[in-house]
Every structure is written in structure tokens, then in C-alpha cells.
Design a protein around this nucleic acid. Sequence first.
DNA 1: GCTAAAGTCA
Length: 551
Amino acid sequence: MLRLHARPDRLTFPFVLRSVAALGEVGMGRVLHGMLVKVGVEMDLFVRVSLVDMYVKVGLLGCALQVFDQSPERVRSESVLLWNVLINGCCRGGELGRAVETFEAMPVRTSGSWNILIHGFLRAGDLVRARRFFDRMPQEMKNVVTWTTMISGFSQNEDHEQALGLFRRMLEEGVRPNDHTIVSALSACASIGALRTGVWIHEYISKKGFRLKRIVGTALVDMYAKCGKIDSASQVFGEVREKNLLTWTVMISGWATNGCSDLALQWFEDMINAGVKPDDVVFLAILTACSHSGMVKEGLRLFNSMRFDYDIEPNVKHYASMVDLFGRAGQLEEALNFIEKIPIKPDFVVWGALFCACRAHKNIEMAELASKKLLQLEPTHPGSYIFLSNIYAGVGRWEDVERVRRTMKSKNIEKPPGWSYIEVDDQVHRFLAGDKTHQHSQEIFAKLEEVTVKASAEGYNPDTKWVLHNIEEEEKEDALGSHSEKLALAFGIMSTPNGTTIRIVKNLRVCGDCHSLMKYVSMVSGREIILRDIKRFHHFKDGMCTCRDYW
DNA sequence: GCTAAAGTCA
């Protein structure tokens, strides 16, 4: 346009500035601002809003403020948007105090003003202040964006229960959800394995005639896959129109985490044949599938194909996955050799993968080497210490376990809390290790005792190795073997009819003792137990697990 | 003909 000497005017700039903002082109933003002044473009409110927003998005809050302060319209009520984008800028720049001041100072407020501020708090992880402003916001101003902001914000801050509670309240208040809302709610269901709520949302959107478009469809497939309903996931996948790479990725990782590695690889081929170009994420999913099922050759072939056929540079996660692939298969020397050849610095996850393999295959020397690296890389990461204490516990060196525990205590390093979710009658229950706060706590512990006794009669033997590596407050509860997944299991058995499948979601890796107990319980109770841990699904039935004790 | 705020994958 400039080359043809056509003069941009006040109507041209908003478009261009928006592009600059989206691309984060700081230099170009300044050039445009300069050009605008030089050619004497009339600075109306549109131009100013676009300018302030551009500066906000490229991270120049000072410049945004300058333009704002020079805007004569800012005191008039039609300038709300100018204030709104500035508040957004303060929030993005981490200046929440200033955002609130600006918010309180503005002449008029719209829904957007509130929404932007609430979003700012949520992004900063300040759920309390977000909630406070949400409660203060006039009821009639709350719109679908307000509710969706709250739902996704709470979910992104790991409070999925409150997120779903907000979703229910929103419907009660008669606010109609849109695609954004549905996706946020489904994502919350996926995070905590709230299958019944997820199914309910599925029914709701079918009834309300939502088309299974790409993003809603993908969120639905992901929800089913993460709730262990992989058949439903694949059925929904078939109904999604205009699938894209992401739709395929959630489905393929779904097969992989649900223990169907063959299908993961098969569907990957289908995806390629459908003309969808793979990326680094989907490759990570199929490499994981290979390592979970011991397909070393296939994994290696795919790793090479990724680099040579698709020109995708492996990142540290791919390398970690390869170490895992060799390590799980017991090829520890290959794993170590592989690490030494990695062109980038191996991180915590890479050495962690080697460590886990060493523990599983009982190679103490290499485990100690890996553990040393872990401590060097992340001296304050609780995992480094837990790994180390695991090795010692494994070979019965209890004084060393004790020493590690003391070190952690003196450095104020705490083990991350383990929690498990279970959904019973549309209600999600969360348990912490040793949790006695549940209203049916006594019955739960009695039930746990009862199933443990039954399981023991069949040959279950509590594995003290897993109990003793735990530390701090958990120690006492661990003596009772009350890991969160066990409590959820007992609660599930006592509060659902015989034969009902039990579904549990845990935030950490399942421990060997819990895994063993679940196998026996699936046998003695005749129930299927589906446990999702941080890595994958364990599907227990008739005393066996789909992970084949290899996870 | 133009300006803001909410969403899916490892």
C-alpha cells in the first residue's frame, strides 16, 4: 500500500496495529506510531484504543500509559474501552494494584471492565480476589464471558471442582453457555476424571444442538480419553467434523495412555494417510506408546523418521522418552549411551527416566549415578530426594533413607501432596494421603481395612519398601497404608452398587503397593478398577492390570 | 470499513 503511495488513514491503522499486537512486533509498533503522528492521521478513539492495546500486547506498558494520558477523551464515558485495554495492560504487566486503582478510577464500567480485572487475578493465581470481585460484580452485568473466565481460570489453577460448581451455577442462573464455556467445563472434567459430569455435558450439547465442531469435538474426545472411556472417545472422534492435528493428537495419546499402543501407532498411520502433517507433540505421544509397550525397534524407527522424514527437531522430552524406551526394556547401557549423545543438555526428566529404569531393573550403581545428576540439576526438587531415598529403601539401607529424610527436612523441601479423585453420583470427592476430613471417614477406613484383609487372604502382601520411603507427616498415615488412591478405592466400593466400575484419578504416579492391592481387590470384589495416574491408565480386572506391571 | 475480555494436545 505504501509502495503504491496510497495513504493509510484512521481506518487503516486499527487493523495493522492489531496484527502488530498479535505478532508482538515491538519495532514495527513504534514505527507505526511514529508514522501515524508524522503523516497527521486523525487520532480518534479507535486509533488510540488500538495503540494502547498494541503497546500492552508488545509489553511496553509505559508507552501505553503515555498514549492513555494524552487522550483527551479519557474522562468521557464513551472511552470505557480505552480504560479496559489499559487495565488489561496493568494485569499483563503484573501490576495488579495499579489495575485495581485504574478500575476504581474509571468514569463508567462495563461487563468487560470487570471481566478483564477478574481474568487478571485468575491469571496471577489469585483465586480469592477473583472470587471477591466476581461476587461484587452486579448480577445483571455477569455475562457468558464472565462465567467462562471464572470456570477456565479456576480450572487452570487446579480447582476443577469449583470450576464445575460455577458451571452448574451458571446454568441455574439461566446463562447460556457457548463453545468457550463448554470446552472449559469439559477440560475440567478431563482433569479430574469426572466422567458422569462429562457425559452430562455431552448430552446437554447434543440436546441444545451444538455441532461437533473441531474444538468442542476435540475437547469431548479428550474428556472421554482422560476418563478412561476410550471407546466413547473413538466414537466421538468419528463424529467430529473438520478434524485437525489436535483432534488426532488427543485421540492418539488417548490410545497410548489407555494401554492400546498398537492402536496408537495404527491411528498415527491413518493420520498421515489422511494428509495431516505431524508435529513434535504427536510424535511424543507415539514414542510414549512405544516405550509403554516395549517396542524398542519401532520407537527408534519413529524417532528417526521424525527427524529425517518430517524435519522435526527432537526436544528434550523426546530424548527423555527415548531413554525411557531403552530403560524400560532393560537396555540400560543403550539408555546411558543415548544420553551421552544427546546434542542438548539432558534435564531432570531425562535422568529421571534413566533412574526409574535402574530401579525397575535393579542396577544400583547406575541408579546412584543418575541420582547424583538429579541432585546436581535440581538441588531443591523434592523428586531428587525421593528418588535417592527410593534406591536406599530398595536395598534396605534404612540409615541412608533416614539421612536423606533429615536433609530434606533441614532444607525445608517437602514432598508434593498426593491426592486422588473419585466421582460418585455426580459428585467429585477428593482425598489426600491419610485424609480424615471426609464426612464418612470412619467407614472409609473400616472398609479399607476390610478389603485389605480380604486381599491378604488371597496373597496380597503390603510392600513396606513403598511405605518406608515416604517422609514427614505422611509417615504415620503411611504405616496404615492410607495413600489417597486407597481411600478413594474404599470409598468407591462402599458407596456404589456391586459390580460398578471404580474410576480413580491420581495426581502422582501410583505406588507399587497400591498397584498390588488394586489387583487383588479387582479379584476379590469382582469389580473393574480404572486408575489414571500421572503417566497412564491402569485397568485392573480379575487380578491383572493392563500395564502388565510395567509402568 | 476500525478498537477489549473467555477455550482444545505432551
